[in-house]
């Protein structure tokens, strides 16, 4: 396949990442097993999964750091195996580690990244200033990175990943170990990148509420397989939807059958003076339930609406068993180092 064909291949489609039957084996162990998914242009795509589920391996293959065992992956219109340099030139990578050189200033670090991408200094010096402004580091730009706090380092990593004007940015655990304020700031930048720069973002995180509020679509990977893929709402709905609990006086007659007839209600159960109603859209169903209960002459003593969290969906899909043996020592050490540096 020529480069032109590759370019044309996604020219008509809305996908910036296309993965088909992707697999990776390390010896006997199959880290990623026949995974297929797509990432749409301009979306924030969340890639979630327990440690050792195959997240990093997949990202490393997509960013051309690891060769594929089998399958196909196309990033920015180019096959990662056949045209790795074309892919590298078009994507930005913000690794989980703090990779900035401590002996250099923030500004010099960004320029170094620019040099690695082959961006002429005339352009990278100007762009570096823009990026430092974006991540609000312009005042600290001339300071050595060894004097930076964890949050500043993280923001610098983000700026480094953007120096090559990527159309797709990979973010591996961008908020790991950061305090609440810095996390909020990082989210703000991520959203700005999507809006102002119409960039596609591919991110992994262990903070599920973060994935819920940021991501347009989420894929959950476990044991090397994609278990579920969809919008956060779809994932939450897949574990059974909202739960409405309506309290009535215990002596009053049972109207479960009538409630069950409501179109938005999926199931009803009654224990004592409490109806437990499952619904696909709890916010719309609950007023209907109140109206019906009153119409039947019952007294509503209390009502509550619980929406499932992404945590529940995640635990439902990946199981509640604790993972202890699966992650490797290196990855764990790197994660610990990142956490401790983030808190510095």
């Amino acid at each position: 396949m020529t480069v032109e064909e590759g370019e044309r291949g996604t020219g008509g489609s809305d996908f910036i990442v296309r993965v088909e039957g992707l697999s990776k084996s390390f010896g006997q162990q199959r880290a990623v097993d026949n995974v297929s998914f797509e990432v749409k242009k301009g979306e924030i795509f969340g890639f979630l999964g327990p440690n050792g589920a195959g997240k990093s391996t997949t990202i490393n293959m997509l960013t051309t750091l690891l060769p594929l065992t089998s399958g196909r992956a196309e990033v920015c219109g180019f096959d990662v195996h056949k045209h790795p340099n074309e892919v590298r030139a078009r994507v930005g990578v913000v690794p989980q580690d703090y990779t900035a050189d401590e002996d250099m200033t923030g500004y010099e670090n960004i320029l170094l990244c620019g040099d690695l991408y082959g961006i002429p200094r005339s352009d990278s010096t100007r762009h570096a200033n823009e990026l430092l402004e974006l991540v609000e580091l312009q005042d600290a730009a001339k300071r050595k990175v060894s004097t930076f706090s964890g949050g500043m380092r993280r923001r610098l990593e983000l700026a480094c990943g953007l120096i090559n004007y990527p159309s797709l940015l990979f973010l591996d655990e961008p908020t790991l170990g950061l305090d609440v304020q810095t996390r909020a700031a990082v989210w703000k930048y991520i959203e700005r990148l999507k809006e102002d720069y119409s960039m596609t973002l591919f991110l992994t995180t262990h903070y599920l509420e973060e994935a819920d509020s940021l991501c347009d679509r989420i894929a959950i990977i476990d044991h090397g397989h994609i278990v579920k893929i969809g919008t956060p709402e779809e994932l939450k709905a897949s574990v059974g939807g909202d739960v409405i609990v309506v309290g009535v006086r215990e002596t009053e007659p049972d109207i479960s059958a009538d409630i069950a007839k409501l179109s938005l209600v999926t199931s009803v159960s009654k224990t004592g003076g409490e109806y437990r109603i499952k619904s696909t859209a709890g916010d719309e169903a609950s007023p209907q339930v109140i109206d019906l209960t009153r119409a039947k002459g019952l007294h509503v003593t209390k009502i509550s609406l619980t929406r499932p969290t992404l945590d529940e969906a995640y635990l439902e899909l990946t199981g509640r068993t604790l993972r202890e043996e699966e992650t490797n020592k290196w990855a764990m050490m790197s994660q610990r180092r990142t956490m401790s540096m983030a808190r510095s």
Binding site: L65, A89, Q96, T99, L116, Y117, S334
Partner: peptide, 14 residues
């Protein structure tokens, strides 16, 4: 390699 700089360099077209 340990501190991730190698992977960062490898993810660029260098």
């Amino acid at each position: 390699r340990r501190f991730g700089f190698m992977n960062k360099a490898l993810s660029t077209p260098v």
